[in-house]
């Protein structure tokens, strides 16, 4: 479904991504694993068009998206949930969802606020509350819900477990499982190996802007050396 190949990106003169390549299959949850600063978020932003790639291809459902503006990439069916959440603080929950709303492609059951409130029950009680007056966990739920309103086929989730209490993390993992069960493909970025293990099928290990290892989560469990070298602190 998503093919990334030879992707490079720079901030000024610093090389952030070098020749990054991986793929996400339909209905799969793939996880980009790596330490802080490894290039996970930049990979996400480059796929989304928020960082301009200096080389490489991003092919989504046969369409080359590298260098396209973010809104066109979103309309092609990729939904982006940023690490910093970026809730519109002055807008209510309902209004935040309205900004994300896009018509669903034919044959797909569209996401509605009601369906999303069933997925994230906490949000249902605060539809008129401004996004700025919500807890971190509630904001994280809202930012995922907001992106789902666009009815994407592939979801980019950047560190959804970051800064959340353990009980919320478990709930988040359950929600992601439900979203996957609905047929969405997901590309997750994580440094929390435990959380990745709860939801992901396959791992892409990234360090200093390069892909170092790819394989199933089960294979990663067995590959002590890979985890030692690229993931442990």
């Amino acid at each position: 479904m998503l093919e990334v190949s030879g992707l490079s990106a720079h901030y000024g003169r610093a090389h952030i991504l070098e020749d990054v390549g991986f793929s996400v299959a339909a209905g799969e949850v793939a996880v980009l694993l790596g330490r802080n600063g490894a290039g996970k978020s930049t990979t996400m932003k480059t796929i989304m068009g928020l960082v301009r790639p200096s080389a490489g291809r991003v092919t989504f459902l046969g369409q080359d998206l590298a260098g396209a503006p973010p809104y066109a990439i979103a309309r092609a069916g990729i939904g982006y949930v940023p690490e910093e959440r970026r809730i519109f603080a002055d807008l209510t929950v309902d209004e935040n969802l309205a900004v994300g709303r896009r018509a669903a492609p034919a044959g797909m059951q569209p996401w509605t606020p009601e369906r999303l409130f069933a997925l994230f029950p906490n949000l249902a009680a605060m539809r008129k509350r401004p996004g700025g007056r919500m807890s971190g966990g509630e904001q994280q739920m809202l930012t995922i819900a907001r992106t789902l309103m666009g009815n994407p086929k592939l979801l980019l989730l950047d560190e959804p477990s970051e800064g959340l209490a353990p009980v919320i993390v478990e709930r988040m993992a359950a929600a992601i499982g439900a979203i996957k069960a609905g047929g969405l493909s997901i590309l997750l970025a994580e440094q929390n190996l435990h959380f990745a293990g709860l939801v992901a099928d396959r791992a892409v290990v990234i360090e200093t802007g390069r892909v170092r290892w790819t394989g199933s989560m089960a294979a990663l469990d067995a590959a002590d050396e890979v985890r030692q070298r690229y993931l442990s602190l």
């Binding site: 989304m48 809104y71 209004e95």
Partner: peptide, 20 residues
Amino acid sequence: VLVRAATADREMVAALGVNQ
């Protein structure tokens, strides 16, 4: 609503598929 959202964070609005 889009105008208010863009006032807060126009890049995020674009990432949600709005042609700025």
